[in-house]
Design a protein around this nucleic acid. Structure first.
Lengths: 125, 125
DNA sequence: ACTTGACTTGGAGTAGGGTCCAGGTGTTGA
DNA sequence: TCAACACCTGGACCCTACTCCAAGTCAAGT
């Protein structure tokens, strides 16, 4: 698969795909003899994973480290697990903050509804 | 209250508080005769609100607009409500993405646990 | 063989959201 | 009244995460 095809498939720009590979957020992608990227299923799975993690706000730093550990082989299984656990807890913390904001927004929206209803019940002027 | 006190109270740097006011994310804060910020309860409530919204990832743009509408008075009640509804739905969308990532992380962590357990069950070498 | 269009790299530029600093003013205690 | 310190403003700088560009190469059709 060319970069353009992968770009369409995952909704990430070709620039972003190249950028991700350059910084090590994706392992090196296979190339044709001429040096052109030729994404295989494994590459696509990495892309899908990273897209998912990034869309949830997981830091690029952490993902780069995960890829680096992965590339070092089986001796890093424990470290990778720890890294994921750490990211998981950060994710949960952020979701809790968002939940608090959501409740607050709901509350405010309700109050606005009430205020608007009250205003409309009054004679104008 | 001085900016330092408010900074400590909410865990936002004095620079950030000044920045927020400058860009209109906070309404103008009362000043002493000498021009020094003297935060009152209303200011603090705004700060608390903005801290909450920002920590949930609500865009500064949207919050600035909310403050601007607020300062225009009662005629903007409807617009403010709409703005909050829009932010609420964005928040929910982001939380859904995070939930998906969380499940994926949990899954991966479990697999690592299994892989590590299997490896330890083998004789080394 | 040549055009056309997608692909390559390295590096510069951008947007969002702060953070830091210099040079100056206000405030307080000795 | 003066030292010491907090506060002020405007503007430069920083970080993250892309995004764009120039100059060059590869590939497919004619």
């Amino acid at each position: 698969m060319t970069i353009t095809e992968v770009s369409r498939r995952y909704g990430l720009s070709a620039d972003t795909l190249r950028y991700y590979e350059r910084i090590g957020l994706l392992p090196p992608v296979p190339r044709t003899a001429g040096g052109i990227r030729d994404y295989d299923e494994t590459s696509c799975q990495w892309i899908e994973l990273m897209k998912c993690m990034r869309s949830a706000g997981v830091q690029i730093e952490a993902l780069i480290e995960y890829v680096a550990l992965f590339r070092q082989g089986d001796t890093t299984l424990g470290a990778r697990k720890q890294l994921l656990i750490e990211q998981r807890s950060q994710l949960i913390a952020r979701m809790a903050e968002m939940q608090a904001s959501l409740e607050r927004l709901d509350d405010k929206i309700q109050r606005y509804e009430q205020m608007i209803a009250e205003k409309e019940a009054l004679p104008q002027g």
